[in-house]
Amino acid sequence: MQALSPFKLLSRFGAAFMEVALDVGGMAVLLYKVIRCFFPPKLDGMETWRNLYKVGVKSAPIVVVTALLTGAIMVIQSGALVAQFDAFGLLGWGAGFATLREVGPIMIGLMFSGRVGANNTAELGTMKVTDQIDALRALAIDPITYLLVPRFIAIVLMMFLLTIVGDLTALVGGAYTGQVLLGVSPSLFASSVIEYIKLEDLFNGLFKAFTFGVAIAVVSSHYGMTTSGGAVGVGRSVNNSVVASAVLIFVLDYFITSILH
């Protein structure tokens, strides 16, 4: 490898920057186009229904499993501390707070991005490289209203609903682990949750889930629609899509956390 001159290094940075800017701009335009379709609502009812079913059913099992394990891990990690201070009454609070506000939405978001986001990119990307999107345009069907809006609705709504399910399962998993590992009875765990955790904590987490849902929908659709280059291109798009989703989840989480305090 030859040494890079400062100029070359700078131009490489510039190229990378332009690439990111292009993607961000593309996503913003996509989001705008999708939102515009809601005023007045223009969408394909059947396609939306089909997507809701597909997204929900496909990701429900994995969300439940992840949430159960997440709740359990949170209890294990706070276990040593709780045992040290003999503060068994705080276990429900510690695990519950962490799960509802942070770890729940993040873990469910990451899983959802892997399951649904990656699948969305792969599907749209395949349609793109096999010219199906152009075929739709040739039939005077707008790909945005026909393909993207239903997926957008399905992803955002299901992410929101599944986070509610996930939060509940995580608490169950936490309570069970608390009983097995630390001998904290589920009723003590529950009362600790009820006493210390405010509704606001739940809503905070659900708001995060909503924004993560929007991020996953926009990112995965954008990378799907800009795929080129056959089978290799589809793989590359899926890779970019899940990576961008993960970064966005953490960045959005930080800003929401710091602004809402």
């Binding site: 873990m107 056959g230 890779n239």
Partner: peptide, 26 residues
């Protein structure tokens, strides 16, 4: 299959690997 098969494989990889990491973590 073609590009569709690659898409399915990548999706399967993220899901299985993330799930495996969570289970191992537990």
């Amino acid at each position: 299959g073609g590009s569709e098969g690659v898409g399915t494989a990548t999706t399967m990889a993220v899901v299985n690997a993330s799930l495996a990491v969570t289970i191992l973590d537990f």
